[in-house]
Design a protein around this nucleic acid. Structure first.
Lengths: 137, 137
DNA sequence: CTTCTGTTATAGCATAGATATAACAGAAGA
DNA sequence: TCTTCTGTTATATCTATGCTATAACAGAAG
């Protein structure tokens, strides 16, 4: 998987790396069990310092996206615990976006479509747990 | 309108102030034509430096939320220009949120409801252009 | 003429981001 | 056992950002 870092971005390098990996998981380019390059190897590939990568990995572990151990390095392992915590997090992050949309007269329908399209983009290649829909009789 | 600043937050003070004002507009607590306290007065009220407030005001002007001039201070004036630019901005901001939601198995329906509820919260007190709903016969 | 406004300039201080170098403990393989 | 890899921790240095402080300027209002 290709990870691109923009050194001219105002976003911190370790945040960019973390985001790229989360996007990779969402797009199913990184799956449970996949190994990420070691902190030193990834740092060498990206041309950044080891500690910058370590910071990103530590953040990913903290948020339940990878598990780290000394033998296997960083392994993708998305935790489904603390879902309510994540919903809260998403809620607060979403608040400013929706507030801006309301101010700028962007309709709810436009926002809904934006979310739906983006959802499709991510989940189109992902294995769905609930493809089978039970119909009420 | 009450503006609260958290000095212990890791979010920059001028960003907090900017966000609070955008939220105020979204909640219709600040309306077109309303004047904001001058940079010095606002700084005094919040207990922050004048330049911190000036930074927030300059940012709000840049994003089309207020107009600044020497006689009237900062006046709420939401610009509807550059809508495509704002949609792009919202799109990129939303991408990481939706990516996280997909990773954490938060369904599209849950996200849609989140957006809808939040939209209602903001727009409930706002003047609606399309309150009248035509019913099909 | 005084007082308010936004605006700009300069300086100092603290924190965060990124780098560099180094070392440690644990696990794997020769 | 020895080497090599892993994540982890500890310092130190440099730069950029955030915040404050003090000061000054131009324009508008009373």
């Amino acid at each position: 998987m290709l990870i691109e870092i923009d050194f001219n971005s105002n976003e911190a390098l370790y945040i960019q790396l973390r985001n790229q990996i989360i996007l990779g998981i969402a797009k199913d380019m990184l799956r449970d069990g996949d190994s990420l390059p070691s902190v030193r190897q990834m740092a060498n590939e990206l041309g950044v310092n080891m500690h910058t990568v370590n910071k990103a990995y530590a953040l990913l572990r903290q948020d339940g996206y990878v598990k780290l151990d000394r033998r296997n390095g960083a392994v993708i392992s998305v935790s489904m615990e603390n879902k309510s915590h994540h919903v809260e997090n998403i809620h607060s992050n979403m608040e400013m976006i929706v507030a801006q949309a309301v101010c700028k007269n962007i309709t709810l329908e436009e926002m809904q479509k934006l979310v739906e399209d983006m959802y499709d983009t991510f989940s189109s290649a992902r294995p769905q747990i609930d493809i089978i829909v039970e119909e009420k009789e």
